[in-house]
Design a protein around this nucleic acid. Structure first.
Length: 428
RNA sequence: GGAGAGGUGGCUGAGUGGUCGAAAGCGCUCCCCUGCUAAGGGAGUAUGGGUUAAAAGCCCAUCGAGGGUUCGAAUCCCUCCCUCUCCGCCA
């Protein structure tokens, strides 16, 4: 949520900056609601003050033993006017809040205008693209014939956009998660957390998935407002809801391995092959809470933590800055990490690292006590995938495939694979 | 599933219809005293919002959430959420 003061004091400038991300702020509607709100609120609070004074006077009179009957009969219309005022005020505040909750974060000044991923700006590349003496397969042709990766089975159990893994491939999937967790906890200073993958509406509103993106989520048929979490960002960021964090505890770095569920409602026909875009996948997520002054530096280091995974796995990738139009609802700036997939001859996203500034913290009410002011102030939140496990698995398979159809595994994974450095598909 | 207890400020914890935004303690800040790896005394210390160019001041709201009763609700009534204890069941 943006600071409501922006809508009162700098509405036009705010609208201008939101245009960078293609968001059209209804300036007139907000201005009108805001001026009504001001008028009604001032009047209503005045009436409330009158009522309070009156009730207090009765109390005082009674404690002096005076007759309170004349006072009781005094105000016949106050009650009615107050009730009307309160109702009007609430309606206006609800309307304003609806507007406010639907406004995305302001893009950082370094973010360029643009409408799609084609307008994203490449920042850097790492690693050399693998050279093959044969035509590399994609992960489906590579793994599916062995049966260790099976889309038909998953379709039987659930439907399209699911997969089953078996044997060494299932183990490799687990190994990647373990490797990522160990690196982030062991070398990058994150504390591991384990959280529910069912979340309620309030949590989703807090991180910005709701109210606008309900269609992307799986909602449980249940009267308890349950949704499947689309990313650990939701439960983990909400861990500190309504908390005031002591300055000494900052920064807070959590890492979480979790299941993620997405309806992919707007992606029909897109990435239908393989396990690029599934309804269920696993991800290791990095989440940080930092002092406001530190968040831009934190975005760089967090992105670096995610990059470390790719570097240690020896996977070539590039970093892009998302353009305004590609930016997520709550993010002020996002770096995507895109790993090279030889099977597609493309870079594909495996991580998205964002600085949300105080946008989520304001919705979730996560603050710290600033020693300089003595006051509670909103923290800044950041998060990034470190990394998406399914897509990393694909990248390992495609980049390390050999002519015989087997896959040589990066050395860093050997301890998690029982010492094996070769994944055999054609020996099954 | 059955029975019970409870949700109050940064924390602990009083408060069952009126000067209660809330005792006391802890913690924290400042001052004094002491002259020492201790203790004592005093003062201050919730959050959000409105008004304002801003501040001060003033006003409004907030004692899990939402309704209700009342001139007036932390306190009474209703609904919901959450936590804890015991029994049963169970991964």
């Amino acid at each position: 949520m943006l600071d409501p003061k922006l809508l009162r004091q700098a509405l036009d400038e705010t609208a201008e900056r939101l245009r960078i991300r293609g968001f059209n702020l209804d300036v007139d509607a907000i201005r009108s609601l805001e001026s009504q709100r001001k008028e009604v609120q001032v009047a209503t609070e005045q009436l409330q003050a009158e009522r309070n004074q009156h009730a207090k006077a009765i109390g005082e009179a009674r404690s002096r033993g005076e007759d309170i009957q004349p006072l009781l009969n005094q105000d016949s219309t106050l009650d009615e006017r107050l009730t009307t005022g309160k109702q009007q005020l609430q309606q206006l505040q609800v309307a304003l809040n609806e507007q406010l909750m639907a406004i995305p974060n302001l893009p950082d000044e370094s973010v360029l205008a643009g409408t799609s991923e084609d307008d994203n700006l490449e920042v850097r590349r790492w690693g050399e693209l693998p050279a093959f003496s044969f035509t590399p397969n994609d992960h489906v042709d590579l793994a599916a014939p062995s049966g260790l990766m099976n889309f038909e089975q998953a379709a039987k159990i659930a439907g399209a956009r699911f997969v089953t893994l078996r044997g060494a491939l299932a183990r490799l999937h687990r190994a990647l998660a373990q490797f990522m967790l160990d690196l982030h906890t062991g070398e990058h200073g994150y504390e591991e957390v384990n959280v529910p993958c069912i979340v309620n509406r309030v949590s989703l509103e807090g991180t910005g998935q709701l109210p606008k993106f309900e269609k992307d989520l799986f909602k449980l048929i249940d009267d308890r407002d349950f949704y499947l979490a689309p990313t650990a960002e939701v439960p983990v960021t909400n861990l500190l809801r309504n908390e005031i964090v002591a300055a000494e505890q900052l920064p807070i770095h959590y890492v979480c391995h979790s299941l993620c569920f997405r309806s992919e409602a707007g992606a029909s026909g897109k990435d239908t092959r393989g396990m690029i875009r599934h309804h269920q996948f696993e991800k290791v997520e990095l989440v940080q809470w930092v002092r406001p002054a530190d968040s831009w530096q934190a975005l760089e280091t967090l992105t670096g933590h995610a990059e470390q995974i790719l570097q240690k796995l020896g996977l070539a990738y590039r970093v892009v800055t998302l353009c305004g139009g590609d930016l997520g609802f709550a993010a002020a700036k996002t770096y995507d990490l895109e790993v090279w997939l030889p099977g597609q001859q493309k870079y594909r996203e495996v991580s998205s690292c964002s600085n949300f500034l105080d946008f989520q913290a304001r919705r979730i009410q996560t603050r710290w006590r600033n020693p300089d002011t003595g006051k509670p102030e909103f923290l800044h939140t950041l998060n990034g995938s470190g990394l998406a496990i399914g897509r990393t698995l694909i990248a390992v398979l495609e980049n390390y495939q050999q002519e015989d159809g087997n896959v040589r595994l990066p050395k860093v994974l050997a301890p998690y694979m029982g010492g094996d450095t070769l994944l055999k598909f054609n020996a099954v």
